[in-house]
Design a protein around this nucleic acid. Structure first.
Lengths: 65, 65
DNA sequence: GCTGAATAGAAATTCAAG
DNA sequence: CTTGAATTTCTATTCAGC
């Protein structure tokens, strides 16, 4: 699978799920057939420019910018 | 010093400096007379809803939402 | 309620390797 | 150029204490 496909999947995942951690994201990716580790997710998050929202109400989740 | 004053200072600091880490922010606060640790900065960051921008271009810095 | 010290937990990077 | 394992670095939380 290409990186691009995986990154599209990441966008889809965080759009439909409340993702707290990169580990969690990696697990969902694995369940979806993308065999990746947290290290790669970290790189994808960076490339995609994703941010971690950490506000007082909306606690802890990844989001697209 | 009140928490509110400190948090205003934080906004000012991240608006005028490129801050990478909470430790760094804590140090600048200390230099400015606010005696705090990273733990408190972490709580302030959360309350203020600050985000850490981690994009491929704009690397690593705190920003207001 | 606000905070610091210590710790747990999460994320980024290094260091190969393919 | 992409990745995983291991490690480092950074952040959040716990557990007092005030």
């Amino acid at each position: 699978m290409s990186k691009k496909v995986r990154q599209n999947k990441i966008i889809e995942i965080i759009s439909t799920n409340e993702i707290d951690t990169q580990e969690e994201l990696a697990q969902i990716l694995n369940s979806s057939g993308f065999d990746v580790t947290q290290a790669t997710v970290s790189r994808d998050v960076k490339e995609l420019g994703l941010i971690k929202i950490n506000g007082i109400k909306r606690k802890h989740r990844y989001s697209i910018t």
